[in-house]
Design a protein around this nucleic acid. Sequence first.
DNA 1: TTCCAAAATGTTACATTGTAACATATCATA
DNA 2: TATGATATGTTACAATGTAACATTTTGGAA
Lengths: 153, 153
Amino acid sequence: MDNVNTIIKHAEQYCKTHGARLTPKRKKVLSSMLQSTKALSAYDIIDFCKREFNETIPAMSMYRILEFLENEHLIHKLKLANKYVACAHITCNHDHAIPQFLICGQCDKVREISINKSTIRKLRENVETAGFELVSPQIEMNCICLSCKHSVA
Amino acid sequence: MDNVNTIIKHAEQYCKTHGARLTPKRKKVLSSMLQSTKALSAYDIIDFCKREFNETIPAMSMYRILEFLENEHLIHKLKLANKYVACAHITCNHDHAIPQFLICGQCDKVREISINKSTIRKLRENVETAGFELVSPQIEMNCICLSCKHSVA
DNA sequence: TTCCAAAATGTTACATTGTAACATATCATA
DNA sequence: TATGATATGTTACAATGTAACATTTTGGAA
């Protein structure tokens, strides 16, 4: 939780550097996501903010806040699951690598890992050969995490 | 179009080998998808069947038919786009490689290509190191096709 | 300090995608 | 042709997402 505050502060600083405003609501949304180990849907976050902060955020606003946070690279949208996760590298100051997401189909737990550059290069070559161009090489993979795997038997 | 019929026949044979039934409705749905160069949503296909075959298929039935066709590996579900495409390899008799999809974000055109095995192996290793297990290594990538890229300017 | 334009948030009313629960029709074959 | 399995239809919703317009808040400029 203290860790969460540290990250929020980082995010705040980062936004300031280019005149973006991390408003109280945006902060609450980001904080909700940082506190979760699993991917959350927009409506999950709405519920969380209501429970945790007693703050009612309408769906439209939530989607706008999520869009803002995504543009700031503070969160990622997982299209595979229609869910959102905080970026695992907010406090890193270097440029971020291309993210690769492992999503547990049972419990929505998410792990963000990085693809090495040579693999990405190969993918990009494949794509160009086929007459397409990669817009975002973010890759999301359907997985099952070990704890779910073992509990299912 | 003749090509479509050939593929449908293959699919029919393929289903017969394990007692699955490619009913007239299922055939119409598969045929619709084979005639399209782009990914279609369930409701797109419903519209297409109405227009082309004057056949009204309720949403529930459409989803069930799509599920059947997916289980038979005759189509793929693209989770990135919530859309469906016919498998590009229905008439191949060999086992299918892991599919990799390039999806044009502008026009929904889809290209199905194959990842080479060493790349897949690397991915799988990455995933296992992180304490997850790959359920389906199908990869979908947000792209833009060259014709859309050029027309956008 | 006050006023204004831009940015952020709220409201309403829908569109789209998908499914649960139950009813009916069709088929394969004993 | 009777019967159980398979396929399809119906109804009524749940979940996700957005368009259009209204209101509030905020950070400067006059």
